[in-house]
């Protein structure tokens, strides 16, 4: 088997695994019960899946100019997916779109309520952040 054939086989494996991970991410966002768990599905398998597809494409094309652009796509993905997931999760929590009954422990709500109680003790006016 020549080097080109090996690269093609590796590319095929990467493409199929990557697509399968994308499919898993899609199944996850349909099946999971609330936004935060859906974000788990939409961040991890999706990032790795896209990375694998990009690697597969790079192995198939094997030219310098495409490789640099594909490297950029991969780097951007790894940098932006966590930030995007965090932004959406944060907005969800602050907009009360989180199903608290699905949480075993919720230390952020405890923390916010403590802070609210302290503020009310100091300044018995209208409650902040109501």
């Amino acid at each position: 088997m020549s080097g080109d054939e090996v690269a093609d086989v590796l590319a095929a494996i990467c493409l199929i695994t990557g697509s399968a991970l994308s499919l898993a991410a899609a199944i996850g966002i349909v099946r999971f019960p609330d936004l935060l768990t859906r974000l788990h599905a939409a961040s991890k398998p999706q990032a790795l899946g896209l990375l694998l597809v990009i690697i597969g494409l790079g192995l198939r094309l094997r030219t310098g100019i495409d490789a640099t652009s594909l490297l950029l796509v991969g780097v951007f993905q790894l940098l932006t997916v966590p930030v995007g997931a965090h932004m959406v999760g944060r907005a969800a929590y602050r907009n009360r779109q989180v199903h608290r009954e699905l949480l075993v422990v919720d230390e952020l709500t405890e923390r916010l309520e403590e802070a609210r109680a302290e503020a009310a003790e100091r300044d018995p006016g209208p409650p902040p952040g109501a």
């Binding site: 099946r31 999971f32 019960p33 768990t37 699905l102 949480l103 075993v104 919720d106 709500t109 923390r111």
Partner: peptide
């Protein structure tokens, strides 16, 4: 799916 938690 299993339950989850928010921890500090």
């Amino acid at each position: 799916p299993p339950p989850s938690a928010v921890i500090a």
